[in-house]
Write a protein that binds this DNA or RNA. Sequence first.
DNA 1: CCTACCGATCGGTAGG
DNA 2: CCTACCGATCGGTAGG
Lengths: 195, 195
Amino acid sequence: MEIEKKISRKEEIAREATRLFREKGYPATSMRDLAAELGIEAASLYSHIKSKEEILHKVCFRMAENFFLAINDIDQETETTTEKLKKSIIAHVEVLTEDTNASIVFLNEWKHLSEPYLSDFIKMRDTYEHRFREIVLEGQRNGEFKYMDEKFAVLTLLSSLNWIPNWYKNYGKLDPTQIGNQLSSLVLSGLKNGI
Amino acid sequence: MEIEKKISRKEEIAREATRLFREKGYPATSMRDLAAELGIEAASLYSHIKSKEEILHKVCFRMAENFFLAINDIDQETETTTEKLKKSIIAHVEVLTEDTNASIVFLNEWKHLSEPYLSDFIKMRDTYEHRFREIVLEGQRNGEFKYMDEKFAVLTLLSSLNWIPNWYKNYGKLDPTQIGNQLSSLVLSGLKNGI
DNA sequence: CCTACCGATCGGTAGG
DNA sequence: CCTACCGATCGGTAGG
């Protein structure tokens, strides 16, 4: 019971910290800001967490894991490349919208990680983007997509997806699957018609 | 001549500060970091600039002005809405790629402005986005574009454009007009075919 | 452009 | 979870 209480308090701290990191950015968020939001003294935070960076680290790597898990079983299935890309986009949007604060911290604050975490993080992100590039290339090989620089296409795709957490919360009209579907159609019509 | 020297030193400081703000973020860049890059003491910066925020302010508002100037005369011309949107996209990309450091600071660090500059900045950005929404709506009214939520379309468009400064420098294959053309085709095929 | 320095604030620790 | 506190660093000023 005491352990349970500790874990839950730790999660509470992490959640509030994530919200502040999103709002003010990681360097501009002080441990005193965070403590004040939780109604305690800054020093008291350290009975629950090891350091400020520990929180950032956990958010960034947990989100990275979520993104990988979401697209992991898609490749196995035998289906059209178009369907594969569409499912990947929807999976990505679902992770992005599940916790918009954590998503924005993941997308914007990772650069404040120290080594060796920073290098690990960048490697993971590159691997993830590579998966999308492979799908686009496959579609070009089997004729489902027109030729187009696959890096350009994937950067364009992911950047439009990754902006979603900035407006999703107050938008309200669409759920993640609908957003994924709309964005899929938008980008797929470009891939299918060529540019 | 002494005045010229002072102005040029001030610009040198602003340029180096912009580079650091882009790399580390505004709050994580100290005036001592900046001074060290320029080979002087931190205190010496203050004979050229008033404050750290003055630099951020100038970058953000100069870029905002650049974006407005670039699309300002497009509306006047009588042409198809498709052409109007295409020209606006190319103009936007040209500003984005002209100084990628300044663009990224403009896009990511504006939130560290203090009031009343912060509110002014947000107002300008909203006005700018409004211009793009109006073009999309016009295209829907005259039948050039299929119906689609115009906020969604513009957010998707601008977010994919605004990622360009993050990869443009090292990409090398395309110039701003070509990038604008490719991205226009990509998004226009979505707008024209509907989603 | 420098030296010398200011008060404020930072992340974090000791000890309870 | 607190009080009391640490050394380091912050943006910026005084005075030259």
